[in-house]
């Protein structure tokens, strides 16, 4: 039976983890490679690096991080942030990323998903969708770190992304991100119901029950979280045990 995945996400800027990672044994908590290794050892099912500045100047730094992580971690790594073209995808895959996530560029031109999927396969193309609630049951996509409204309906766009060739959708609720109030479950469920491909729930996790809700109520195939793991509130093992106790199939290591 396929297991539900837990994906710790590391926000990276200029080669350093931004939110900080509180692991007991970590000498340098700001080093993404060290954090990735710690999560690998802790039983994370995948890892995600999000390049939050993603300026042209620091791309080299990101490639180096990805390369060094892939040398040490033998679980899948998704990299996102500033990905604009098929050439960007190729460069990240060559560095050692297993999946690459499009965000603003896919909103501006959904066909970039097709071009990337045609060349590298849908399995490595993720479409990240950042959405805000605009009215009950309606969610709009915002780009550029949530600053720029697009007028595009999030659920319709998710369907478009899947049709164009994305292999997975990463849904982040801008209303919930950083609040620790839990995933936006109606949004997650609406997108999960609208697409045939796996959906990763993101944004707002504060408790282990939130992770459970993302799967049972949101219909997500995977749950992504940052703060609750980085700040040591819970371990990956605690999260997995809690989800398993709630009846969700988990890979317990």
């Amino acid at each position: 039976m396929l297991k539900t995945r837990i994906i710790p996400c590391l926000d990276v800027a200029d080669g350093r983890v931004v939110k900080g990672v509180n692991f007991v044994d970590l000498v340098d908590a700001g080093d993404p490679v060290a954090a990735a290794q710690a999560y690998d050892a802790a039983g994370a099912d995948e890892l995600c690096f999000l390049d939050i500045h993603a300026t042209h100047e620091n791309r080299g730094t990101m490639f180096d991080l990805v390369r060094r992580t892939a040398e040490q971690c033998f679980i899948p790594l998704t990299v996102g942030g500033g990905v604009r073209s098929v050439a960007d995808v190729r460069a990240l895959l060559l560095a050692g990323a297993d999946k690459v996530s499009f965000n603003s560029a896919a909103v501006a031109d959904p066909d970039v998903l097709s071009r990337a999927a045609d060349q590298f396969g849908s399995q490595c193309i993720v479409c990240a969708i950042d959405a805000k609630t605009v009215s009950p049951g309606k969610w709009e996509i915002f780009t550029h770190g949530g600053r720029k409204p697009t007028g595009i309906d999030a659920v319709e766009f998710a369907h478009t992304a899947a049709t164009k060739g994305a292999g997975e959708i990463l849904v982040t609720s801008m209303d919930r991100d950083g609040t620790r109030a839990g995933f936006n479950l109606p949004l997650t469920r609406a997108i999960s119901d609208a697409v045939p491909i796996p959906v990763i729930a993101s944004g707002g996790v504060g408790t282990l029950d939130h992770l459970v809700d993302g799967v049972t109520e949101g219909g997500a195939s995977a749950v992504l979280a940052a703060s609750i793991f980085h700040f040591g509130d819970f371990t990956i093992a605690q999260a997995k045990a809690h989800m398993a106790a709630a009846g969700i199939p988990m890979r317990l290591t």
């Binding site: 396929l2 297991k3 099912d45």
Partner: peptide, 11 residues
């Protein structure tokens, strides 16, 4: 209800 691609850890 099972999604395709089959993506993740299976036993």
């Amino acid at each position: 209800k099972l999604k395709v691609p089959h993506m993740g850890w299976n036993d």
